[in-house]
Simulated assay, not measured.
Amino acid sequence: MGRSFEQYQKQKLISSYFSVVLSIGLVLFLLGVLGLLVINTKKMADHFKEQITVSIFLKDEAKDSETDQLRKTLAMAEHTKSATYVSKEEAAEKHSAEIGEDFQDFLGYNPLKNSIDLQLHANYVTPEEIELIAADLSEKSYVEEVSYDKPLVGLLSENVKRISFWILVASGIFTFIAFLLINSSIRLSIYSKRFIIKTMQMVGATKTFIRLPFIWTNVKLGMLGAIMAMLALGATLFYMDETFPELMLFEDLEMLAVVFSSVFLLGILISLVCTYFATQRFLNLRTDELYY
């Protein structure tokens, strides 16, 4: 009978520990995902910004030397990610492939212009910067027109600012919620041992002596939960990298190390703080208050 009760108590203890580890792991995983999202918001925004093309259409009388010189100058400029020359013939082939028929047969000639497709580094994809670049290029005598999607550039810049702000707000709120959830799990775990705490206190044990085993136990549980969260984060990162390789999620290893280290340290810190205050609460209660 005694062995059966002992086994039941051990199973109950393991179940309690498992629920604490699981709750800490899930909360830290979600917190880590949010951290990765915050870090990669700029990277994702930069990726979309750098897909915007500024088309520089050249006049028919533009000399090959002028065109080649412009392309080389643009390629060397600090704002340029790539500068690609597109002949009117290549543009016609591409347009015909898109519409599914050769428009030159209908028109009898090729109305398109030779052009240079310019893609900028993300920092320069703002309405003000592109406007300055376009104005400078338009002044050249052999450039007929500089074209880009102005509404899209404005909308992209505005949305990036708005999304970044709300992600930061959500991060703050979620960190607070994470603390509350982990605190609740640990307090429930310690609540079941409140009579043991009070018994130890009544036989003369100091508060520090009583508190330390609980803190150490829950810090270890916090570590296990953090490791679980880190493994889940790693798996998620590998999956995302395989699905969206253009995001280059493993390019900035230092920032990833910061996120993973933060998750681990948060698991320890939150467990330590929550355990301290939970045990302190029961240590300060009178014996008759333990029943409420």
Rank of each mutant, 00 (worst) to 15 (best):
E6R: 10
E6S: 10
Q7S: 09
Y8M: 13
Q11V: 08
K12T: 10
I14Y: 13
I14H: 07
S16P: 00
Y17V: 02
Y17M: 14
V27G: 03
L28H: 07
L30G: 10
I39E: 15
N40G: 02
T41P: 08
K43N: 09
K49H: 12
K49M: 06
E50G: 00
Q51A: 11
Q51I: 06
I52N: 03
T53I: 14
V54Y: 02
S55G: 05
F57R: 05
L58H: 03
L58F: 09
E66Q: 13
Q69A: 12
L70E: 10
R71W: 05
R71Y: 10
T73Q: 11
L74E: 05
H79M: 07
T80M: 01
K81C: 06
S87Y: 02
E89V: 14
E90R: 08
E90N: 09
E90C: 02
A91E: 05
A92P: 05
A92I: 04
E93Y: 04
E93H: 10
S96V: 02
A97I: 03
E98T: 11
I99K: 06
G100L: 06
E101F: 11
D102V: 06
D102I: 06
Q104W: 04
D105G: 10
F106D: 11
L107C: 00
N110I: 03
N110K: 03
L112A: 07
D117H: 10
L118K: 04
L118P: 03
L120K: 00
L120V: 00
H121M: 06
H121A: 02
A122W: 01
T126Y: 03
E129I: 06
E131R: 12
L132M: 11
A135H: 11
L137I: 09
K140C: 08
E145D: 12
Y148S: 03
K150A: 15
G154Y: 10
G154T: 07
L155M: 12
L156D: 11
S157V: 14
E158M: 15
E158S: 11
N159M: 09
V160G: 05
V160I: 12
V160L: 14
K161T: 15
F165N: 14
I167S: 08
I167Y: 08
I167D: 14
S171Y: 11
I173S: 01
F174Y: 05
T175V: 12
T175N: 07
L180T: 05
I182T: 00
S185T: 12
S185F: 08
S185H: 04
S185M: 03
S189Q: 08
S192H: 07
K198H: 13
K198E: 04
A205P: 00
T206Y: 02
I210F: 01
F214C: 02
I215S: 00
N218P: 01
V219D: 00
V219C: 01
K220V: 13
K220Q: 09
G225V: 01
M228D: 15
M230D: 09
L233C: 13
G234L: 14
T236I: 15
F238T: 15
M240C: 15
D241A: 08
T243S: 12
L247P: 08
L249W: 06
E251K: 15
D252H: 13
L256E: 04
S261T: 09
G267P: 00
G267S: 04
G267R: 03
L272N: 14
L272E: 14
V273A: 11
Y276A: 07
A278G: 04
R281Q: 10
F282G: 00
L283W: 00
T287W: 10
T287L: 09
Y291M: 03
Y291V: 01
